[in-house]
Amino acid sequence: MSDFDWSVIARSWSFLAEGMALSALLVAVATAGGLVFGFGLALMRRSRYAVIAALATAYVTVMRTVPLILVLFWFYFLVPLVIGRPVGSLASALIAFVLFEAAFYCEIVRSAIASVRPGQTEAALATGLRPSQVMRHIVMPQGLRAMTPLLLNQIIIVFQDTSLVYVVALRDFMTTASVVASRDGRPTEMYTLVAVVYLAICFSLSKVVERYGKGQRQ
């Protein structure tokens, strides 16, 4: 135990903070972009045209069955190829995350829409509202309420998922800690810190979700 040098944490503080900032950026972009695309995918899955619905379903199935690491490798390789010139790992990772999480947010949005009673849609249509208006004023507001706990849970999962950018050497919180660990030869201190920080953040967030869930049920 006396072999450990915990001051390494203090010394690399700003470096680690930069890593955490990148993790936060990844979560924010993955969630925002993922929600937008996920909503689009959900609408596609509900489309009258079988081809559109099938395409969306295939996309969601693939993204949910394949490991995130493989998806990260895919886009790390594919994005520069498509654009025609080298692209930083951040851009590839952001694209990969948005497209990956979109599949999960799609399922969340779908279950939210399905949770609204069909009678609500019928009643709204009966007053002459168009389907898009019904979605905007009646279904989504109610669906959003149902969706919030699932949404918050998914954000916690996304936050954990961002640690995987380690495999493309992108410097998020986890990767910066591992850099310090190998550079200064202090794996125990650094990885313990990483574990404690993730535990604290994810645990608090899950408690918030729990409390929100209880509040809704009153």
Partner: peptide
């Protein structure tokens, strides 16, 4: 064990 990412647990 739920709230620590699996990669971190692996390294631990």
């Amino acid at each position: 064990f739920r709230n620590i990412p699996p990669l971190v647990q692996l390294f631990l």
